[in-house]
Design a protein around this nucleic acid. Structure first.
Lengths: 142, 142
DNA sequence: TATATTGCTGTTACATAATAACAATCATAC
DNA sequence: GTATGATTGTTATTATGTAACAGCAATATA
């Protein structure tokens, strides 16, 4: 485990404990794998990276992490990205997906969010959740 | 097949022929199934609705239809929606997904598109494709 | 008309992604 | 201590999507 990951895990542990949630071994291990992973792993990539776990275990841990706002599912990749930014408002994010380096960057552009909400008002559509995933080339890869 | 679907299929036939593309039997049948379907079918829903085809056949036809701009894949549902609007600019669309009636409406809100492009300019990210899928309740269901 | 060439289909098998079901275990509150 | 609910371990199964290759159909070329 990377040094930075170890710190992050410790911080998450404190945060979850404060919320009365349990950061059990499989949850911690999956989170650490997500943080250490180079790229944006799919569930079975995590299974493989962890070595000796069953898919079910990983899916359950991912469900928990997503519910706690510690990870996001990237729909257009069937993949998962960790989310450790404390400012993360989980209904207001967008993902930039680089098709070369396969990294996913999370944006928190409220302007985009507000703009979409405003545009959809006239359609009478009640927004529950948004999937905004932009594919292309990141600044490093252009 | 619904009467309207029959007309639509004929129009598509003309359009594809003009482009030098072949609207073969499986492609036509999958397109007709998509148009007739009540809701937003997944690939295997189409397989089932068609009765006697193999999944591979349906996936190949769907790939073709998506490439021709006659259908879209909805990433967050693993589902497919037909697209017959001639104004359809395929890089500029958004989907409104009703979680009650399960219908998907395609929007062509250029303002949203332009706004996102403008916001991402400063990130130095080169956009190739966008997945914008808004889940919630449509005006009929609220 | 023959015959390449290319694209499309049919078929089988397989690969990947996700969930159901239920027993066993652990943490906490009483 | 022990009852309770949450979490895990395990197996099996379902859902979603592709690979590979043989055969066929449309078009092009001679």
């Amino acid at each position: 485990m990377q040094a930075k990951t170890k710190e992050t895990i410790a911080a998450i542990e404190r945060k979850l404990t404060a919320k009365g949630e349990r950061f059990t071994a499989p949850r911690r291990q999956v989170m650490a794998t997500l943080l250490d992973y180079d790229g944006t792993p799919k569930a079975y990539d995590i299974v493989e990276a962890m070595g000796d776990v069953k898919p079910m275990t990983v899916y359950r841990a991912l469900d928990f992490l997503v519910a706690q706002g510690l990870a996001h599912r990237i729909e257009s990749l069937n993949a998962y990205a960790p989310c450790v930014e404390s400012h993360c408002a989980h209904k207001d994010s967008q993902y930039l997906i680089c098709e070369k380096c396969e990294k996913v960057e999370e944006l928190h552009n409220h302007a985009i969010d507000d703009f979409i909400a405003k545009q959809l008002l006239k359609d009478g559509f009640k927004i529950e959740a948004k999937v905004i995933e932009i594919h292309g080339l990141c600044s490093d890869c252009t």
